[in-house]
Deep mutational scan, measured.
Amino acid sequence: MTEYKLVVVGAGGVGKSALTIQLIQNHFVDEYDPTIEDSYRKQVVIDGETCLLDILDTAGQEEYSAMRDQYMRTGEGFLCVFAINNTKSFEDIHHYREQIKRVKDSEDVPMVLVGNKCDLPSRTVDTKQAQDLARSYGIPFIETSAKTRQGVDDAFYTLVREIRKHKEKMSKDGKKKKKKSKTKCVIM
């Protein structure tokens, strides 16, 4: 069974824990209790493949930012979460993405942009803004509501699919490099 290491990042209060708990335990946590770091595991079937999701729910508070490099190193894919009623959390996505790329030393890291709290009427981040940002990053965008469960499975499952595509691409690139290195030079 394939294991996928997913990391949920975003500013404090955007609903990272609520999304994760909704996926794992099928219930909505409405009281806000700032996370330092929590880890969850769940076995699911995605596109006919049974897999184990190892999900790291991270601290959004700035005082825990020193811990970010460590979990970013171990993560295979990242859910970059903002709240649709919090423009600052949307603007912060850029910083999370840049930090992930720096730590992973790669421009090509599996990510999904997630606009959470889409059940709320007080939207300050337009869907088109988020779609445009995701398009500019070359990553999928999904709106979710941890409260109603809308888009929750889709967000995590899409990230797994992005990781699969990335692994497939990397193995193809690896095979191309191996083929090239088999060419021999004969000096007579």
Rank of each mutant, 00 (worst) to 15 (best):
residue 29 V to A: 08
residue 156 F to A: 14
residue 130 A to F: 11
residue 88 K to W: 12
residue 142 I to M: 02
residue 156 F to S: 11
residue 157 Y to Q: 10
residue 166 H to N: 11
residue 163 I to V: 04
residue 178 K to E: 09
residue 165 K to R: 09
residue 62 E to L: 06
residue 177 K to A: 06
residue 135 R to Q: 07
residue 99 Q to V: 13
residue 95 H to R: 12
residue 52 L to F: 02
residue 175 K to H: 10
residue 50 T to S: 08
residue 98 E to I: 00
residue 58 T to R: 01
residue 113 L to H: 05
residue 79 L to Q: 00
residue 118 C to Y: 07
residue 130 A to H: 06
residue 17 S to P: 02
residue 72 M to S: 08
residue 145 S to V: 12
residue 92 D to V: 03
residue 84 I to D: 15
residue 115 G to H: 04
residue 64 Y to V: 04
residue 37 E to A: 03
residue 33 D to Q: 01
residue 108 D to P: 04
residue 134 A to F: 02
residue 103 V to W: 15
residue 15 G to Y: 01
residue 112 V to R: 00
residue 127 T to H: 06
residue 143 E to V: 01
residue 185 C to L: 06
residue 31 E to N: 08
residue 73 R to A: 13
residue 64 Y to M: 08
residue 92 D to W: 14
residue 152 V to H: 07
residue 140 P to S: 03
residue 2 T to W: 05
residue 181 S to F: 09
residue 186 V to S: 12
residue 77 G to R: 03
residue 188 M to E: 09
residue 85 N to Y: 08
residue 132 D to A: 05
residue 123 R to F: 08
residue 183 T to R: 09
residue 151 G to T: 12
residue 19 L to S: 15
residue 39 S to Q: 05
residue 129 Q to A: 12
residue 96 Y to V: 13
residue 100 I to A: 08
residue 171 S to M: 11
residue 151 G to S: 14
residue 120 L to Y: 15
residue 159 L to V: 11
residue 48 G to I: 02
residue 14 V to P: 00
residue 31 E to A: 11
residue 33 D to S: 00
residue 100 I to E: 00
residue 130 A to C: 11
residue 41 R to Q: 00
residue 53 L to H: 07
residue 93 I to N: 03
residue 79 L to W: 05
residue 187 I to R: 04
residue 128 K to Q: 07
residue 162 E to T: 10
residue 116 N to K: 00
residue 31 E to F: 04
residue 123 R to I: 06
residue 60 G to H: 15
residue 116 N to S: 12
residue 25 Q to H: 04
residue 103 V to H: 13
residue 103 V to M: 15
residue 58 T to K: 02
residue 129 Q to E: 11
residue 121 P to M: 11
residue 20 T to N: 05
residue 115 G to M: 10
residue 6 L to K: 12
residue 156 F to C: 14
residue 149 R to E: 12
residue 78 F to L: 07
residue 30 D to N: 04
residue 158 T to A: 08
residue 18 A to L: 00
residue 138 G to Y: 01
residue 157 Y to T: 13
residue 101 K to N: 08
residue 54 D to A: 00
residue 148 T to R: 09
residue 9 V to C: 02
residue 106 S to M: 13
residue 11 A to C: 12
residue 26 N to D: 09
residue 30 D to W: 03
residue 111 M to F: 11
residue 70 Q to R: 04
residue 38 D to G: 00
residue 26 N to E: 12
residue 50 T to K: 08
residue 63 E to W: 01
residue 102 R to G: 07
residue 56 L to R: 02
residue 14 V to R: 15
residue 113 L to C: 07
residue 118 C to V: 10
residue 154 D to E: 11
residue 71 Y to G: 15
residue 49 E to G: 07
residue 25 Q to D: 04
residue 188 M to D: 11
residue 101 K to M: 13
residue 104 K to G: 08
residue 130 A to R: 06
residue 104 K to A: 14
residue 156 F to K: 15
residue 83 A to S: 15
residue 155 A to K: 05
residue 178 K to S: 09
residue 134 A to P: 02
residue 65 S to W: 02
residue 128 K to S: 07
residue 132 D to P: 09
residue 61 Q to T: 05
residue 55 I to Q: 10
residue 17 S to E: 01
residue 35 T to L: 15
residue 19 L to V: 08
residue 107 E to T: 13
residue 26 N to M: 06
residue 62 E to Q: 08
residue 46 I to A: 08
residue 20 T to F: 00
residue 51 C to G: 04
residue 16 K to P: 01
residue 131 Q to E: 11
residue 51 C to A: 08
residue 46 I to V: 10
residue 47 D to E: 06
residue 82 F to P: 03
residue 172 K to T: 14
residue 44 V to M: 12
residue 130 A to N: 07
residue 16 K to A: 15
residue 182 K to T: 07
residue 112 V to M: 13
residue 102 R to I: 11
residue 33 D to T: 00
residue 26 N to R: 09
residue 182 K to H: 14
residue 102 R to M: 08
residue 26 N to W: 06
residue 41 R to E: 00
residue 80 C to W: 01
residue 155 A to Y: 15
residue 65 S to E: 06
residue 186 V to Y: 14
residue 184 K to M: 02
residue 120 L to Q: 07
residue 10 G to F: 03
residue 105 D to S: 13
residue 20 T to Q: 03
residue 145 S to M: 13
residue 63 E to T: 04
residue 63 E to Y: 02
residue 52 L to W: 01
residue 154 D to Y: 06
residue 135 R to W: 11
residue 137 Y to D: 07
residue 3 E to C: 05
residue 91 E to D: 08
residue 105 D to P: 10
residue 123 R to L: 08
residue 8 V to Q: 02
residue 38 D to V: 00
residue 3 E to V: 04
residue 24 I to Q: 09
residue 159 L to A: 05
residue 51 C to T: 06
residue 56 L to D: 06
residue 154 D to G: 07
residue 8 V to S: 01
residue 71 Y to K: 06
residue 63 E to V: 01
residue 110 P to R: 03
residue 72 M to W: 06
residue 133 L to D: 04
residue 55 I to P: 00
residue 45 V to G: 10
residue 144 T to P: 15
residue 109 V to A: 09
residue 107 E to F: 13
residue 180 K to L: 10
residue 29 V to C: 07
residue 124 T to M: 10
residue 58 T to E: 03
residue 17 S to A: 00
residue 162 E to W: 12
residue 83 A to I: 03
residue 17 S to R: 00
residue 43 Q to E: 10
residue 105 D to H: 05
residue 8 V to T: 01
residue 168 E to F: 06
residue 135 R to Y: 13
residue 152 V to G: 07
residue 140 P to R: 01
residue 83 A to W: 01
residue 70 Q to N: 09
residue 121 P to I: 12
residue 107 E to D: 09
residue 187 I to L: 10
residue 175 K to Y: 11
residue 176 K to Y: 13
residue 98 E to H: 02
residue 46 I to D: 11
residue 117 K to H: 15
residue 98 E to D: 07
residue 152 V to E: 11
residue 11 A to S: 06
residue 8 V to C: 03
residue 103 V to T: 15
residue 87 T to C: 02
residue 38 D to Q: 00
residue 43 Q to S: 09
residue 183 T to G: 07
residue 51 C to H: 11
residue 83 A to R: 11
residue 100 I to K: 00
residue 82 F to L: 09
residue 19 L to I: 08
residue 177 K to S: 07
residue 30 D to Q: 04
residue 95 H to Q: 11
residue 68 R to N: 01
residue 99 Q to L: 14
residue 37 E to N: 01
residue 96 Y to F: 15
residue 155 A to F: 15
residue 46 I to Y: 08
residue 169 K to C: 09
residue 169 K to R: 05
residue 73 R to L: 06
residue 4 Y to P: 13
residue 176 K to V: 13
residue 30 D to P: 08
residue 36 I to K: 00
residue 2 T to M: 12
residue 139 I to A: 08
residue 159 L to N: 03
residue 10 G to I: 01
residue 124 T to N: 11
residue 49 E to L: 03
residue 64 Y to G: 09
residue 164 R to S: 07
residue 98 E to R: 10
residue 106 S to T: 10
